[in-house]
Design a protein around this nucleic acid. Sequence first.
DNA 1: ACCCCTAAAGGTCACATTGACTTGAACACT
DNA 2: AGTGTTCAAGTCAATGTGACCTTTAGGGGT
Lengths: 225, 225
Amino acid sequence: MTVDLAIFTLRGTRLMVLLIDRGLEPFLGRPALPGGYVQKGETLRQGALRELWEEAGIDGGLLHLEQLGAYGDPGRDPRGRVVTVAYLALGPDLPAPVGGTDAHHAYWASVEDLDRDGVRLAFDHSEILADALEQVRRKLEHTPVATAFCAAEFTLSDLRTVYEVVWGQPLDPSNFRRKVLGTAGFVEPTGGQRMPSTGRPAALYRTGNAGVLSPPLLRMGGQPA
Amino acid sequence: MTVDLAIFTLRGTRLMVLLIDRGLEPFLGRPALPGGYVQKGETLRQGALRELWEEAGIDGGLLHLEQLGAYGDPGRDPRGRVVTVAYLALGPDLPAPVGGTDAHHAYWASVEDLDRDGVRLAFDHSEILADALEQVRRKLEHTPVATAFCAAEFTLSDLRTVYEVVWGQPLDPSNFRRKVLGTAGFVEPTGGQRMPSTGRPAALYRTGNAGVLSPPLLRMGGQPA
DNA sequence: ACCCCTAAAGGTCACATTGACTTGAACACT
DNA sequence: AGTGTTCAAGTCAATGTGACCTTTAGGGGT
């Protein structure tokens, strides 16, 4: 019984996922998602939070954490039947992970690069990562989780960048603003402003109290040519 | 390591879920979702299919089966740490289940009645059932799974009834038709017809090849007063 | 045959939403 | 002051939506 974590963050305009190079057999040296055995007496979620801290030095209290699903095919681990529960974590621009206690090291990898280079992860982690990516992209449409990628206060441009990076397609700034502000409970203004490096100051917002977006923010069509 | 199943079907205009009365401790006599231990060498999905057959005599090859999630809180089973993977199953008007081999019997229970009477299921199965219900209602919006509740050939009225029963709200027949037929790959005509007890014959359709509905069929607003 | 009832099928119309585009506002820099 | 950049706000045609109406194709009764 293990938990594995697909932890995403934004580095500039690139979507990054946290990987470790395995320091033990099986799959020694191969990149993998961080994870480990669930200890008795802790919930699955607590186990995920503990692994998050032990393997990457990240305090999970700050980021969004949700369950992705269970993966338990008999052949997924050569050591025998190991069922893993995958968790999906999203956070704002997170610091470089500390090395980890074991003989492995943790690092941020660009999702785009992994895909382009055809990197194959240990176990069935490539499959888990693909499921996690699809889940994030879909959740951006129907929930305000995109704000989990932003700091406590953010501009609409920050938020739009999240969508553009995760979806991999440009969005019209004006229409994006209209839809976000028109969706009750998505964001609420803080009153503050932030100066961009150049241009007009942008209003700051914080996450609203909505659990779901209605209407949803669909990714189909609607992009500038 | 167990699997539990939330199996839904339609009986007339009521949404039913398959329950068993437990014949063993713990929770002896209490209603519960069918399920059991995963055997070594089988995938989680295969385990779910096997339990489906053993506990209810239902051939899972005919119905829609998808994973719901893992439930592993330490206190959920008084016997100790048992993690269960919940599966969601949908099928057309299914036959009355055979009694099952153990000392328990399986039966269809109306979801509405369970909710109204505040029935509490064994373990955390009430929570699983609630999650399963929400999942079904949400999936009807974005995928063609509603057809899993229908026979191989069905009328648009059949399909509309599925939505009305699962969502618990009436839908405008004319607008429903327009949206379903306007969504590519949702349904395709078979050419056949079926006579209702009274009224004009209805065209028959079968499930299309679409995996997702675009545009989605949202349940907000849009109902006749 | 005829009329009536019912449900399916198809159409109408006002209104909301959307994507694409344009205009105006608020800064920094030269 | 002039220019460039970004945020903000507005315009407009096309599309989608909800509410409602009309026509069609059966069956049953008289």
